[in-house]
Design a protein around this nucleic acid. Structure first.
Length: 282
DNA sequence: CTCGGACCCTGATGGC
DNA sequence: TGCCATCAGGGTCCGA
């Protein structure tokens, strides 16, 4: 699902509604939702009980709630995860529920069960505290300490398709299939090109485009094609109306009018303009 | 070490 | 109607 803008929308909602609340009960409805918490469901629920939420954090597509006992509840939404306050539209997909001391319930709903919760300690990585399971995740383009030049240098050494590298969360985080295609379209680069064959200036332009498109999306509450991608109140964003590449196969390029194409690589759909973003010759 | 592909899930959709 | 294949915005793991 959710890429950086959608996750940030959720984080902001949580920051507003659950900060300073205390967890009074937790129930795990599906064990798969806590499989990344190695100590098991009972440990997770026991340790969450009576914890107070002191703040929120996010890096890339990971978000977390910092807790009064100096650790963090790390949440990854996977492909279909939701953090909901209030109505749960489909109880079949309810994976975890936490009751807060103001009477509200924080629900983790996840159709495909790729997401989950885990408790972790905070560790210092390059001067920033992040939960241990997030330590390997690179800074995202909206991080004030994002080092664009350093990422460009990493990309220049990658003999691999640029789109694959944009999706590699250890290189740059927060970008998923939609915003990768949007960034590549804005920078006029075909995703099948080798990262190492793209100039430094062009790579810098690509990373700027990624920051820009995700900022734009955030301003519109994120991208939602359906009710799977919603904020903590169950509301959809509307950036899907502003997409220039993703999902536009057969439609004219908004820049040059050529018919947009869809290719598959990495077992995923990639949408691009064949004129603005010519495929590399093999 | 790097890279590419398989795999993990549920549900919606379209073709036969 | 049923059945099968394909698809979906995630990450991880394993073999080459």
């Amino acid at each position: 699902m959710p890429e950086l803008p959608e996750v940030e929308v959720v984080r902001r909602g949580l920051a507003e509604h659950v900060t300073d609340k205390t967890i009074t009960a937790v129930r795990v409805h599906h064990p798969r939702a806590v499989r990344r918490h190695e100590a098991g469901p009972a440990d997770l629920t026991a340790r969450l009980l009576d914890s107070t939420i002191t703040g929120t954090g996010r890096r890339g597509k990971y978000l977390w709630l910092t807790l009064s006992d100096q650790n963090a509840l790390v949440v990854h939404l996977g492909m279909s995860g939701q953090m909901l306050l209030g109505e749960v539209p489909n109880e079949n997909h309810l994976r975890i529920a936490a009751l807060l001391d103001d009477g509200t319930t924080l629900s983790f709903v996840d159709q495909r069960t790729f997401g989950g919760w885990m408790l972790a300690d905070l560790v210092d990585v390059d001067g920033t505290d992040v939960p241990a399971p997030v330590a390997h995740i690179a800074r995202d383009p909206l991080d004030p300490l994002f080092d664009r030049g350093a990422v460009v240098n990493v990309l220049r050494r990658k003999h691999s398709e640029i789109k694959r590298q944009l999706l590699d969360q250890t290189v740059v985080s927060g970008i998923g299939n939609i915003y990768a295609d949007e960034s590549l379209w804005r920078a006029k680069i075909n995703g099948a090109r080798l990262a190492s064959g793209i100039s430094k200036a062009k790579l810098a332009q690509l990373l700027d485009a990624a920051a820009e498109v995700m900022t734009d999306a955030l301003g519109q509450g994120g991208t939602s094609f359906d009710s799977l991608y919603v904020n903590v109140n169950g509301e959809s964003g509307y950036f899907d109306r502003s997409l220039d590449a993703y999902g536009r196969e057969g439609e004219p390029c908004r820049r040059c009018g050529a018919i947009m194409r869809r290719d598959k690589f990495m077992n995923r759909s990639s949408f691009y303009c064949p004129r603005c973003q010519p495929r590399p010759r093999v």
